[in-house]
Structures are given as C-alpha cells and as structure tokens.
Design a protein around this nucleic acid. Sequence first.
RNA 1: GCCGGCGUAGCUCAGUGGUAGAGCAGCUGAUUCGUAAUCAGCAGGUCCGGGGUUCGAAUCCCCGCGCCGGCUCCA
Length: 646
Amino acid sequence: MSQDLIRLTLKDGKVLTVPRGISAKDALMMAGEDEDSLIAARLNGNLVDLTQTVDHDAAMEGLGFDSEGAVEILRHSAAHIMAQAVKSLFPNAKVAIGPAIENGFYYDFDVERPFTQDDLEKIEARMREIIASGMEFHRKELPREEAIDFFAERNEKYKVELLQALDSPWVSCYSQGDFVDLCRGPHIPDTSYVKAFKLTSVAGAYWRGDEHNPMLQRIYGTAFFNREALEKYLHFLEEALRRDHRRLGRELDLFSFSDEVGAGMVIYHPKGALLRQILEAFEKREHLRRGYQIVMGPTLLKTELWKRSGHFDHYRENMYFTEIDGQSYGIKPMNCLSHMLIYKSKIRSYRDLPLRFFELGTVHRHEKSGVLHGLLRVRQFTQDDAHILCMPEQLNGEIQDIIDFVIEFMGIFGFPYEMEISTRPEKSIGTDEDWDRATRALVSALEEKGMPFQTCEGEGAFYGPKIDIKLKDVLDRKWQCATIQCDFTLPERFDLNYIGVDGGRHRPVMVHRVILGSIERFLGVLVEHYEGAFPVWLAPVQAVAVTVTDAQADFARSVCEELRKAGMRVELDDRNEKLGYKIREAQMQKVPYMLVIGNREVAAGGVCPRRRDGTQLDLMPVQEFAAMVDKECLDATMGRVGLGII
RNA sequence: GCCGGCGUAGCUCAGUGGUAGAGCAGCUGAUUCGUAAUCAGCAGGUCCGGGGUUCGAAUCCCCGCGCCGGCUCCA
C-alpha cells in the first residue's frame, strides 16, 4: 500500500482506504454519509471535530443529530456562543466554565453586577445574531504556557487558573468570530447548527463549587437541533410544573407550610394525614410480615449519648440542642441510638440474631435555609427506619431480603429503579477486612439477585459501604429513597456483642436501611408521580357520593354508611348544587370513584359508579361496589392492601 | 449559609408616593337540576413583621421572617 493512503474501519465493519491527512468530514462523505446530518465524528472512540485530520489507520464513525453525545456537543457549543454574546455585551465579564449538563448547559461569569432578566433577553438576541451569521468553530492547539500568556493578557484569571491546574504541555482552544475559549472540544461545525435554544435562568454559583471562592453568575440555557425538540422540552417543564407537589398539595388540601410555624416543617391536613396513615399502616404490616419488630424511641436524648455515638462530633451542625434541668439534650437526627440501647438491654445469643428493629422515627435536621424544598427537603421528617443486627455470615442473606423488600415496594408503587454500590471513601474508619467483607456482601447480594448496579468508588459513608436505590418517576426523574448501609462504628462504640456458639463474645454486624426513606419526601414524589391521582388503595378519599337533588340525601347517606362499614373511605356531597358542578369538583379533587345518586339509584337501591377517567359502570348493589374496590386495591398491592387498612 | 427574584383577600393575581381592587373560593337567598362551573346579593385585608424617610408608604430605604430559582451540604 502506498505511504499516502490509510485505512479507516467504519461502523459497519467496512474498510475505507483514504489519503493520509484527510479530514474526518471528507472521509465520512466518501463513506456515503450525508454532509448535512453530520455534526462531529468518533475516531477510535474519541469524539472529534469534522475538521479533524486523520493521519493513521483508525476506526471512524460519523456522529449525526440523533447520535449519542451529539446534543451534548451542540449544547456545549451553545455555551460558547452564549459566552461570546456575554463578552460582546459586557466586555469586562470574565468567563469561567461552561459545560453541557443534563437537559442543557450553563456558563459562569464574573461580572460587576448580577444579570437581570433584561440582560438575558439581550444576550439571547445577540446569540441569535451569532447563530444567524454561521460562524465556524476553529480549533487551535498550542503550548500550555502560550495559552496561559494569551488568557493572562486578556485578564481571564479563571482560565489561567484552569490552565495552571492542567498537566498536559499542549492544550486546545476554540474560536468562533473574535471569541476564543480554552476547550477540549469537539464542537459543531458552525454556529448555525443551533436551531433552537433558550436561556432559562440565572443564579449565583461559587467558583469551583466552593463557598470560600467568589460567587459567579451562572446563566442556564438549553439547546436543540430543531424547534420541535425544544418545544417538547418546554412542554416537559410545564408538565413538571403541573405535577409540582407543592401546588397539588394545596389544591388537594393535603398539607401546608406556615411561616409562623417555621421553615421546613410540614402541617398535614386531614387528607394528607390520612394518606400518610395509609402508607404507615401498610409499612408496619409489611415489616411485621418480614420478621421486623416495631420499636419506638424518644425524640430527646442526652447530649452525652450523642457524644458516644459520634454524632456530636460528626453531625452537630445539623442537630438541635436544648437544656433541661441543667442537662444538655439533643433532638434526634437519626433513630439508631435507642435501637442500640434496645439491643444492649439484655445479653444476646447468636440464637436471637438477626434482630430487626423497625421504627417510623421522626427526626429533625437543621438543613440550611436555602435548600428547603416543599416535602422533598424539610427539617422534620419521618423515616421508615430499621437497624438490623446480625452475625457476619448472615449479612448476605439480610441484604438480599432487603433488596427483595425494596423491589416489591417499587413494583407496588409502579417505580422503575436503579441500584448503586458506594465503596470506601478516603476518610473512613474500620479495618480493610471489615470493608472488604461488607462490600463483598453487598456486591454478591446484588449479583445473586441478578440486579444490575453501578459502582461509585469512594462514595460510601465513612462508617461503611452502602447500596443506594434511585427510583424513576413517570417523568423519568430520579429520586433517592431507599438506602442500605453497613456500619462498623456503632456496634463498636456501643460495645454490642452476642454470645456465639463457642460461648465467646462476638461483635454483631449492623445494617441501617430505609425503604421509602423519608415519608415526607416519598409522599412528595408520589404526588408528582401520580399527578395527585392516587391509585384507589392509596387515595385518601376513594369515593364521593353525589346527590342529584335533595330528595336523594337520605339514601346517599345510607350508602356512605354502608361503604364506611365495609372499610371504604367515602365522602358525601349533598350540597344544593347542580350535578355537573359537583362532578367537576370531585374530578378536580381526583377522587377515584363518583357515585351519582338520583331517583333511579334510589328506586333500584344500588349505585352507578363513575370512574375518574370518565368510564361509567352499570348499576350494582352497594356491597358489590365495595367488593369491586376491595379487589382493585388487592390487585394493585399484590394482595396486601384491601379496604379497611385504616 | 451565599447570589438573585418575590411576599397584596383562602387561591391566582392587578395596583410604583395620594381613599386597597378583580376572578375563583366562602356566606346568604332563589333554583331541585342526571355526569367538568345556575343566578343574585353579601362579606372578606395588621398589603409578611419591625423600624425609618415623607404632609402622606402596599409603593422608597434598613433589619428580620418566609417562599421561589440556583450554589453548597447531605451520617
């Protein structure tokens, strides 16, 4: 083969012989790719610009609009365009970093005054000009020192700082028009590829995320290859807004917050409290079925005890303290302490293990004011918390049981989920042997269950490795709820032990775990997931009886009474309003069943249920309706919950 | 905690220095009606709290509380 030819292996396995030094774009066009749909290329697995020249044999693949990673390249380029616009409007602005993120991009700027909404509009307008002019992105490689001089000259101290932290002697910069930015690339060929974008918000953000650093101004935006995709995304945002649990919580009269009470404290109204009671009743039954014992500990415990557990040293900032009779007490931020004391209340034998203590434990954590968010981030919340104390050889089985528990619950609520194992972090306690054994127990439990999982190296708690379960709601948003954590410190600090078969004392292994996590957060997620239209087994009000006129009130009352006796949660709407009005209201309250009661029903002595989705069922006796709803509840919960759980 | 925005009737919001408003919800009355809003009338406010500027503050300034969007933190 001639020296001037190289061989490119294409995605479909075909080999293309091309001149050495050809651009990625020309090579891909020779391979039959459509110029208009290409935005970048993959060379030996690495993303590169279309203008990249190829000097050696390689594997090559074109990146089209729909390819994985394509939209990230677009968004990153959009961030550059935004930075160019900002620099042209605010020449004194210093640029920091501007990556693509999930659903969009951002760029951080150091500016004299924060951006306003007006500024965003001006920036958007300038971006549109830049996009319309179709400026090409040019890559330039230069020695790092040269780049430092370049940016230092332009007073771009953040870029200089970034460059100084880099190891490589050569770096790359990209320019479009007069704007030059330090960047690894790749980028879209020219600015006109950004067919649809929007700047969404502006917020303060610390340089490198560290609160000791200066605060920069971050502008968020998003970009797409076509207008429809942007519209779809904006529609998704609207959808999320409609499902917002804070709004639905008010509209459905579930809960509220009050500035007189204080930030981050939930007030449950009757329907919200009922919903929570249903969840809790369900949980208690499920834990008892699985051999957990329900326990209850106090809210206030002496500070001395928090010192012994290590919470005082490691978690004090988040705790509330008070003084009673000259004694310092701390309000519990976790439930483990009394569980430790229950374990220690008598001598334990290996025959007693495993012990599984379950508590719907209400804890207080002093979260920073800026992070509070509806039910999802509060200062007082209740965990479905349990601590399992077992022999090391029982650990694997216990973990498997918990995983089964989680899987079953996620199935009942209709959530897909992902699992992650987090391993030993740098700052941690315990022997290597402990960590290995516990980590292996977690990994093998997941493997034996055939569960796929991700590994997050060094992300474990300082006291032990953990499995986190992230559920995904109907809008594909991820929420952390369940977590399974091994703990080497507490059994040690509280000197827990059991008498083994050999008659000697041994240290039990401890597992902290929650299934729903915080009941508050889980409720918030549930509200958003179902958009407030709870499945009938969870709905605080399962049916509303609606009279057509006053004449049916007595019969309607007797229907409600009968249904209540059967365990149904039912309300009566006998107000002097037109039927349509009452139906509309029940519909907006998302009640699963409406029982319209007019003269026909009175005469027949039965009900004609109407489902929330508008389907109309035939006349049936009241008892038959109750049996039907009971079955519906049981079917949705794998036979666990019927009528009358509360 | 930090940056920015915001706080007016139960809810959604108008009102930018000169007598606090609308729609929905509520109450009263009429209407007694068959599957997503009947009509009329009435009532409803420490304009988040405190301080200041001003002849006069919902409106301007300061402090605090709370909410929203982020950052950060998350044993």
